[in-house]
Nucleic acid binder design. Structure first.
Lengths: 99, 99
DNA sequence: TTCATACTTGCATTTTAATGCAAGTATGAC
DNA sequence: GTCATACTTGCATTAAAATGCAAGTATGAA
C-alpha cells in the first residue's frame, strides 16, 4: 500500500465514520433512491446538514446524484463500495500471510 | 443493519480514518509485530502520540498487545479486520439487490 | 535500592469537523 | 414576469480529535 492509498482510505473512512452519514447510507440501501428532503425527514436531520453530508458522500464516490426537476436524487454505489472494502480486506490478509 | 451496528461501524471507521494510524497498521502488516518505540521511529511520530493511537486501535480490536519485559508489542488482527470489512461489503450488496 | 529504559497519562493547545440558521441559487408552476 | 419549492452555501458556534511536552508508572539491570 502506497502513501497515496493511505490518504485515499483515510478520506473514505473519514466519510464513513459519521453516524448520520451511515444512517443515510442505510436509508439509501432500503430504497432505490431518495432526494434530500426525504432523507432529511426520514433521518430527522436538518436539511442543510443532510445536503452537505450527501455532497461529501458523493465526492468520495459512495453515492451518485441526478436532478429531476427541482429535486436532487441520490443513490448508493453499492457495488463500488463493496468492491473497495473487499480489496482492502484482501490486501490486509495478503500482507498478513507474508509474516 | 441496526442502530447499534451503525455505532459500531462509525467507531471502527473513525479509528481507521486517521492517516497516522493507517501508517502504523501498514507497518504492522509488514512485520510480525512491533513495539511502541519501533513504530514511533519508523513512522516518525511522537512516542506519546503513537502510544495513544495504538491504544485506540487495540480498543476496537484492530490490534492486539502483549508485554515482553519493558516493551509492549502490538500486532495486527488481520483476519478479524478483513472479516468485518467483507461482512459489511456483503451487507451493502445484499440490500442493494433488494431494490 | 538506585538507575535507565519503555511506555502511559494529564494537560493545554491546535486542528478539524459537525451543526443550524439565514441568505442565496435553481427550477417549475402560474 | 412573480411566486413557491427544493436545495446549496456562508458564516458563526460548538464539539470532537490530534498533538506534543512534561510528569507519572512499570520493568529489568546493576
Amino acid at each position: 500500500m502506497k502513501k497515496k492509498d493511505i490518504e485515499k482510505f483515510s478520506t473514505l473512512f473519514k466519510v464513513l465514520s459519521d453516524s448520520n452519514r451511515l444512517s443515510m447510507i442505510q436509508h439509501l440501501c432500503g430504497c432505490r433512491e431518495a432526494n434530500v428532503g426525504e432523507i432529511s425527514r426520514c433521518c430527522s436531520i436538518d436539511l442543510s446538514v443532510v445536503s452537505r453530508h450527501l455532497s461529501k458522500l458523493k465526492n468520495v464516490g459512495v453515492l451518485s446524484a441526478h436532478k429531476k426537476g427541482k429535486e436532487v436524487y441520490y443513490d448508493l454505489n453499492a457495488s463500488d463500495l463493496a468492491k473497495i472494502l473487499r480489496e482492502l480486506a484482501d490486501e490486509i490478509e495478503k500482507t498478513d500471510c507474508c509474516r
